[in-house]
Amino acid sequence: MSAVIDTAAKPEVITFTEAFSRALHDAMEMDPAVITLGEDIGDEEGGGIFKVTKGLSTKFGTDRVKTTPISEQAIVGAAIGASLAGMRPIAEIMLMNFITVPMDQIVNHAAKLRFMSGGQTHVPITIRTRTGAGAGTGGQHSDMLEAWFAHVAGMKVVVPSTPADAYGLLLGCIFDNDPCLFIEDQLTRTQTGPVPVKGEIIKLGKAHIAREGTDVSVIGYGRPVRDAMVLAEKLAAEGISVEVVDLRTVSPLDTETVLKSVAKTGRAVVIHEAPRSFGCGAEIAARIQESLYSELKAPVLRVASRDVTVPFSRVLEAAYLYQASGIEAAIRQTLEKRAAR
């Protein structure tokens, strides 16, 4: 696959999978210190179960693109060790539920080494993983665990909502000097969006106003942002002006951009796919009300999935998962509060 994107023969859109893949190809072209390791990622093994790494080992060799034993703790541990030797390793954890295995290496080492070594060393690794409910993959293949990592000092957590962002943010993670967790959504991987500019890095830690509006701020990351964009278009027809704040980087959170948006609209709906309780939404909502209590025209609302294990059955899974209709209802609810005043 060519990484050149500005040819006339190419379509004007790419999928998420293509965006992830291009970012990996381009990063490895840009810097020989970029190496990749993970389960089944080599071309001889099929190029990864979702084909994101397809072509990498053929192009860059198995010294740089290594299929590993099924040892997630060793994948991350070896990536940490390689980073200490000057590499920028990309460690792939096939599915996010498997990331519970290397928690020790991530939480106690990758995240803390810069601090605990007195600043002598750092761990510029990127952990790529994928997850997301809605594809019928059950409670051990679907969890959104981003809040666990956002809670750890020293970690950066990134979730893209468009293919172009996926490309720029993945490059941003790979060339960042702190350990990054990059979460790919398995449900939307074939969805398309405008093509990114080759080599263009999106700096981490900065939220993006995906759509400007004046009545209510919808704040989120990843898949629910795509739902919010569709809803914003629909509600515009009714004269409701929705501002969509795409965090891009969940942690460290760009509080400034969030507060600026909510200060303007006076209303906030925080959305995420992960279960509601103790999720990132609670932190975002708290930061908003701590700073903007007197300016809020309505309580900050959260839309999230239910606090149960992701069930396998399609019917149950749909009932578990947050719904776009729930986001719409929350937006209308914040506006009703205004009417009641």
């Binding site: 070896a78 980073s83 200490l84 000057g86 590499m87 290496q105 106690n108």
Partner: peptide, 29 residues
């Protein structure tokens, strides 16, 4: 770092896989 002495870990054994990764990177370079 200047003495080639890596930060000691309180969670025992984590340095074993890190050493393996370090050595692989050394060979790769």
């Amino acid at each position: 770092k200047k003495a080639g002495f890596f930060s000691i870990s309180g969670n025992l054994g984590t340095q074993f896989v890190q050493a393996v990764g370090w050595a692989m990177a050394s060979a790769y370079k």
